[in-house]
Amino acid sequence: MTALLDKAPLGVAVRIARIDWNAMTDDEGRRLREFGLMEGVEVTPLHRGSIFSRDPLALAVGRMRVIIRARQAAMIAVEAAEAERQSA
């Protein structure tokens, strides 16, 4: 069961199943990888937007926190992470 990262609930760790590299520019894709976002990695969506919009999205990737736009998050398919890692 996979869903897209831009719709993923906040505070719940998920595993990246697939990233649609073709839908984004080379620069975007590389920067995502530089942030450690790639297949198999666990991420936790933390914060989403302000009163003005649902953009952007703050994620925890390992010990790093990164900000991406919902447009990019929509290119990332995620699945549930293992149960023992879900406690927050």
Partner: peptide
């Protein structure tokens, strides 16, 4: 194109 926004959040 719409500008992107990708940034690292420092602690």
């Amino acid at each position: 194109d719409a500008a992107g926004f990708m940034m690292e959040m420092p602690r």
